[in-house]
Design a protein around this nucleic acid. Sequence first.
DNA 1: TATTGTTATACTCTATAACTATA
DNA 2: TATAGTTATAGAGTATAACAATA
Lengths: 147, 147
Amino acid sequence: MSDGQGDAGLEDVVDGLLEVTSRVHHVVCSVAARHDLTPQQLELLRMLAVPVSMRAFAEELSCDPSNVTGLVDRAERLGLVERVPDQSDRRVRILKLTTKGRNLRSTINQEVARSLTNALGLSTDDHAKVMSVLAAMTSATKPPRTD
Amino acid sequence: MSDGQGDAGLEDVVDGLLEVTSRVHHVVCSVAARHDLTPQQLELLRMLAVPVSMRAFAEELSCDPSNVTGLVDRAERLGLVERVPDQSDRRVRILKLTTKGRNLRSTINQEVARSLTNALGLSTDDHAKVMSVLAAMTSATKPPRTD
DNA sequence: TATTGTTATACTCTATAACTATA
DNA sequence: TATAGTTATAGAGTATAACAATA
């Protein structure tokens, strides 16, 4: 397979990985659309399991803090989150899901899991084998070389 | 693991899959940024291996045709693609990579492959095992149920 | 009439820079 | 001075609706 020289197989793994990623993204977008959410609002919901400051959230998202302002403005307008003033530091706003946000988060997590299961046929796979592959890919900073 | 009842393991597989997807996305964004491209422009480049009409491209991207106009406008401004009039149907514009676009596409594909390999430690994995898992997930429409 | 691509419009997401209110 | 969050601004991506050219 692949190029018939040195790294035979690696190229196929990369292609397969990008294809799986694309399908996962498609599933996530479908679930978001079903609830009139953008993929980013869905991600905000998914990541906000525990209350965090705006700042910390920007870091989790790896984006500029000014982004979070708009993102949260819209989520707040939808009644999904609220900004709670921090007692110990009056500069800080703590992001918290509302009851509506928590319920929607729960619903969405279930739907994402179910749709992924169906779209990728996970239920018919050998979970142990799949997990060993996925776990290997996400084990900290695996490779010796950094880049 | 997971919830300790019925589908033990499936939940972990879903979580692992979303984590891997997130890492892949991060790698792709890094490569795009390195070349002053948005992730969408990089995707356009990756998908345009073979010339296609604007219409067909919109379908490949699963987006509205009006989107492709702007996307291609910007790619054209960067000198990466060109609109070639179709001989047989004068309504149609064929999208083609320029030489610059082809070169950049090649470079980017290599960088994505290399970065993914490093970031996910693919080179140290059992390719056959990984491929069997990825292939299972992307085999047509696997599940009996559609959703 | 139907189809291809575009334009006009509006909204979301994103970053940069400048600002405020705290600390 | 430094930090948390916001605002102002600008550009990219996206969809909807209306349109021109062609079929």
